[in-house]
Every structure is written in C-alpha cells, then in structure tokens.
C-alpha cells in the first residue's frame, strides 16, 4: 500500500484542524522567491549598467574599440566573437547530434540505446573546466598544427573555442533531439513501415517533419548554452581585445585570438572595474547583453518545445 488509511475517525478530524494550508503557502512562497531571484537578476544588471547606457549610448554596442583606461567601451568585437564561437560549435554539433539522435531513437535496440544515452549524459556531466583543461593541453596544439599552413600566432583561436564548445553542446543537441523524435507516436512509424517504406524513408518523411519543432528547440537551447559558456572558452580563446575583422565573412578571424562576451566577463578586469562606476557599468552591460541574448533564445526554444508537445 502507498499510504495507511487512518483507522479512527477522530484522528482524521484532529489532523484536519490546521486552517492555514501550510504546504500551499510554502509552495507559493518558494515559487515567488525563484521568480523574485530571476527578476532581481535582470533588474540588478540593468540598474548597475545604467551609467554606460547613459554616457556611452549606442556606441556601446556599435563601437569596435575597448580601452577601459580611456573610458572607451565598444562591445562589437566581443559580440562578434561570441557569435563566431557559437556558429562553429553549432556547425559541428548539430549534424553529429541529430544524426546520433536518429540512431538512438530510431535504430538502436533498447539496451544499446540506454547505454548510449548514459554515455551521452556522462559527457554532458563533464565539468566545463575539464573541457578547458583538455582544450589547453590537446586541442590547442592540434588546431595550431592544423592551421600551420596559414602561420597562426598561437593555437588560442576562435576556432579552438568553437570546436571545444561544439563538443560541450553535443549532448544537449543529442538528448533533446532524441526526446523530440521519441515524441512522435509509434503508430505513425508503423503505418509508414506498413506501406513498405524503409527505415530511412520513414525517418525523413514521417518522423523528422513531425519532430521538427523539438529539434529547433534543441538547437536553440544549445545555442544559448554556447553563448553563455565561460570557463572553457576563457582558457582557449586567447582573450585578445579589439579583434574586429577587416572583412566580416573572411575566415581569417577563426585563426586568430579573440574575446567573447562571457570570456571578457570572467577575466580579471571584472575585479579591477568595481571601483570605477563607468567601467563597472560597462562590464555589467556585457552581462546584460548576454542575459538578453540568452534569455531571448531560451524563450524562443521554449515556444518551439511546447508547440511540439501540444501538436
């Protein structure tokens, strides 16, 4: 039995006595606290970064130079760095992740599927600092050797960071895509197979079209993760300020050191900045930008995910 029926009626009445529904109040209070935390997070970053919006204005997001001693704060190179790292990561992780998810959800027998899923969850559990360590000691050198025909300055490049983040978001893409594929009713598959379609045809023309919103949600969530990743990127990106490329679409920046929003925030400048209101505001402005970007992407991902569930 899952609960003991109370034997004596008076006992029941005595237990009913408290008029205040403690559990309900507690439940609402917890949720209120969580909501308050999220709100105050946004408010705090907004409030603390006010000076930079007031004093620097739009140049803060369009300027390409950052010299804090001269109070020149332009964040565009960092936004660019974040975007490049994320794009490289997605280009690597999405095809592999979706392919592997098709394998686990549609092809593998249950036991093997569980084994792969556990392996992938473990991959997701590896701390980002360990990824960073592996990046510093292996990936950096590999990338340096790979790029040697173009004579790079070091192995600390946007490409290195992108590859590393690609591996880090692979489990996110894989797990959520697997969920989305498994959410398509089995009857749909059976109907297609019953018509004589092969496994791949069933996946391509029945399963993928229906799992589409869930896969988009997975990719968006992975994008959010890669934009916000600090530790691993910090260790391999080179943290070179003011790397604004001459040609936006040339592959040259991939082979150079750079800076992302997150890696800038994690650097020692954050400690230095606290005494100087404008510098501090400029630093927290980066946080606000990051929060805004990731928040928008997460909310979009949520929309897609829910749409998937209700369809």
């Amino acid at each position: 039995m899952f609960f003991k029926p109370t034997s004596q009626p008076p006992d029941v009445r005595r237990r009913r006595l408290p008029r205040v529904p403690h559990t309900r109040v507690f439940s609402w209070l917890c949720t209120f606290l969580v909501g308050l935390f999220l709100l105050s997070l946004v408010a705090l970053f907004g409030w603390q970064s006010l000076p930079v919006w007031r004093d620097v204005g739009p140049a803060y997001v369009t300027g390409t130079l950052w010299f804090y001693r001269q109070h020149t704060f332009g964040t565009l190179p960092m936004i660019y760095g974040s975007v490049v790292v994320s794009v490289v990561a997605l280009v690597l992780a999405v095809p592999v992740g979706v392919g592997a998810a098709i394998c686990t959800a549609e092809i593998l027998p249950p036991r093997l599927r569980l084994a792969v899923k556990i392996a992938v969850e473990l991959l997701a559990g590896i701390p980002s600092v360990v990824y960073g360590l592996l990046g510093i000691l292996f990936l950096r050198d590999w990338v340096y050797r790979l790029l040697s025909p173009w004579d790079p300055l070091s192995g600390d490049t946007l490409l290195t960071a992108g590859i590393l983040v690609g591996v880090m978001i692979l489990p996110t893409v894989l797990t959520l895509t697997d969920d989305a594929l498994r959410g398509v009713p089995a009857l749909q598959r059976q109907a297609a197979r019953g018509l004589g379609l092969t496994c791949s045809e069933t996946v391509c023309s029945v399963v993928l079209p229906q799992a589409w919103p869930g896969i988009v949600a997975a990719v968006l969530l992975a994008l959010g993760r890669s934009l916000g990743e600090m530790i691993a990127v910090f260790l391999v990106v080179g943290r070179q300020d003011n790397q604004w490329p001459a040609h936006l679409l040339s592959p040259q920046p991939l082979m150079q050191s750079g800076q992302t929003l997150a890696s800038k925030l994690g650097g020692s400048e954050t400690n230095i900045a606290y005494g100087d209101p404008l510098h501090w505001a400029a630093i927290l402005g980066l946080g606000l930008l990051l929060l805004f970007l990731v928040g928008t992407i997460t909310a979009m991902s949520f929309r897609f995910l829910r749409q998937d569930r209700h369809a």
Binding site: G35, L38, L41, F45, M230, G266, L291, G295, T298, A299
Partner: peptide
C-alpha cells in the same frame, strides 16, 4: 503551469557566470 515551466526554463538558461556576478554584487 506553462508560465511556471517557462520560469524554470529561463532560470536553467541563465549562464552560470551571471549567477556569479549576481552573487558578487549582492
């Protein structure tokens, strides 16, 4: 329920670094 789930989803999406900065300030 949808709104509460979105709250959790957003909280999950906040980059961990920003938790650190929040803690640093507060």
């Amino acid at each position: 329920r949808r709104r509460l789930l979105l709250l959790l989803y957003l909280l999950n999406g906040v980059p961990s670094l920003l938790f650190g900065l929040f803690g640093f300030i507060v």
